[in-house]
Design a protein around this nucleic acid. Structure first.
Lengths: 218, 218
DNA sequence: ACATCACTTAATTTATTGATTGAATGATTC
DNA sequence: GAATCATTCAATCAATAAATTAAGTGATGT
C-alpha cells in the first residue's frame, strides 16, 4: 500500500475509533442538544468529571465538539461539519445491519422529549392555530416544486447566514426530504445552538403530499 | 443512562470500532472491488494470512463483509447494506474536519482539483450520448470481477506500452478502485503528458455499483 | 486413507486504551 | 492574595486489542 493511502486510512481509522465508545457517543448526543459544562455532561452520562473530561478531549481532538471557556466553566458544543450526517450514516447502517437492535434504536430516537418530532397531524393542527412557523430547509429548486403551505425556505447551508430571517419568539418546525434526510436534523441542531425553539417534522415533504394534505408552490 | 440507550450506543460503538483500524479499512476497500480469497487479500494488504483472517472476521461480525466457501478457499465479498454510504460519510467528515487529509490527498495524489473529476451523474449522461471512452485502470483480475459498462481495461502499469490502444480524438474518463486509489491519478497524469484529453471519475467502481448503476462483467 | 491446501482458532506476547486517584492549572470570589 | 470552584493533567492499574506463532479444521486430490 502506498504511503499516502496508509496515512489516509490511518486518519479515517482514528476518527472512527473516537466514535468507538458508548460513553463518547452519549456525550456527543448531549452536546448536540446545546452547549453544556463538563460537570453537567458528566452528571447526565453518569461519569466522573475527570473521565468525562478525558472523553471530551478525544471528541475535541477528533473535531466532533468544540470547547469554549465561560467564566470558570468550559462549555462543550457540537463542532461544525457533517457530524450529524456521519452519525446518521452510522445509525442507518446499524439499523439495517443489526435488525435485533433496530427496534430499540428507533424507539429511543423517537422517545427523546426534546428531539421528539412533530407529527403531520400535530402540525396540521398548529398550522390552523397559527402558532408555528414552518421552515423548509431543502434546496431552493425542490422548494419551488412544492412545499408545505406557508413554509419559509432557507436551505440548510444558508441557514447560518440567514438567521435574521427567522423569528425568535415563535416555535419553529423544520422539515426536509423525509425521515432519513439529515437536513432538518442539522437545521434543528444549528437553530438550537442559537437559542431558537425548534423541532423537526417526523417525515418530509413527500409524505406530507402523499397524505393528501394541502401544498403550496411558487 | 437507561439500559436500552446503553445497548444502542454500545452497538454503534462496536461498529465504529470495527472501522477503527487502517488495515480493516484497507481490506474493506479491496473487498469492495469484488470477491477475493483470504490469501489474496493478505497479499494485497501485506498482512500475514492469520492476521488478515482475524481482521476479516471482525469485519464479518460487524456485517461489513460476507464470506462464502468456494472449494477449499473462502471468498470474502462486500455485504449488503449502506456500507459505502457510511464510508463516504466518514470520508466527507475527515476531509472537512482534518485538513491534513485534504493535504495528503493533494500532495500525494497530484492535486485533486486540477484533474477536474467527472461525477457519476455526468458520466451517465455522457455514456448515453456516447461521447466518451471509459478506461478502467485497475488490475485485470479486478476488472474481470466487474466494471463499468463498455469500459476498456488497461491496468495502469501497462498503460505506457499500450497507448496505441487508446483513441486520441475522444475524451477519456479513467477510473479505478475509489476516491483514494492512486491508479486513476497516475493514468490521468501519464495520458495528459501524451496529449490525451482525459479526466478521472470522482470515485470508483464500488461506488458506481453501490449507486445501482449498470455494471458489466467478463 | 493420507497428504496437501486454505483458512481458522488458540495461545502468547506486546501495545493501547479506559477508569480512578490525586495533584496542577485557571478563573472567580472573598 | 488566599480560598474556592471547574476543569485538566499525570500516574497508576486493569482491561482490551493487535500481531505472531503454532495447532486445528475442512475440503480436495492422489
Amino acid at each position: 500500500m502506498s504511503r499516502a493511502k496508509l496515512q489516509v486510512f490511518e486518519q479515517f481509522a482514528e476518527l472512527a475509533r473516537v466514535l468507538g465508545h458508548a460513553h463518547r457517543l452519549e456525550l456527543l448526543e448531549y452536546v448536540a442538544q446545546g452547549e453544556r459544562s463538563v460537570e453537567r455532561l458528566a452528571q447526565l452520562s453518569g461519569l466522573s468529571v475527570a473521565n468525562a473530561s478525558q472523553h471530551l478531549k478525544q471528541l475535541r481532538l477528533g473535531g466532533f465538539v468544540q470547547a469554549r471557556r465561560d467564566g470558570k466553566r468550559v462549555l462543550y458544543g457540537l463542532a461544525d461539519g457533517p457530524i450529524l450526517s456521519l452519525l446518521a450514516a452510522l445509525r442507518t447502517y446499524a439499523e439495517r445491519n443489526r435488525p435485533e437492535v433496530g427496534k430499540i434504536v428507533s424507539d429511543y430516537f423517537h422517545r427523546l422529549d426534546e428531539l421528539e418530532p412533530v407529527s403531520r397531524k400535530e402540525l396540521v393542527h398548529r398550522l390552523k392555530a397559527g402558532t408555528v412557523v414552518v421552515l423548509d430547509v431543502r434546496p431552493q429548486d425542490e422548494f419551488v416544486l412544492g412545499h408545505l403551505p406557508g413554509a419559509v425556505n432557507i436551505p440548510v447551508d444558508e441557514l447560518k447566514r440567514r438567521l435574521a430571517d427567522i423569528p425568535k419568539n415563535q416555535e419553529i418546525v423544520a422539515y426536509c426530504r423525509g425521515p432519513y434526510c439529515v437536513f432538518s436534523f442539522e437545521a434543528v441542531a444549528l437553530l438550537r445552538r442559537h437559542g431558537y425553539k425548534v423541532r423537526r417534522l417526523q417525515d418530509g415533504y413527500p409524505e406530507w403530499r402523499a397524505a393528501g394534505l394541502p401544498v403550496g408552490s411558487s
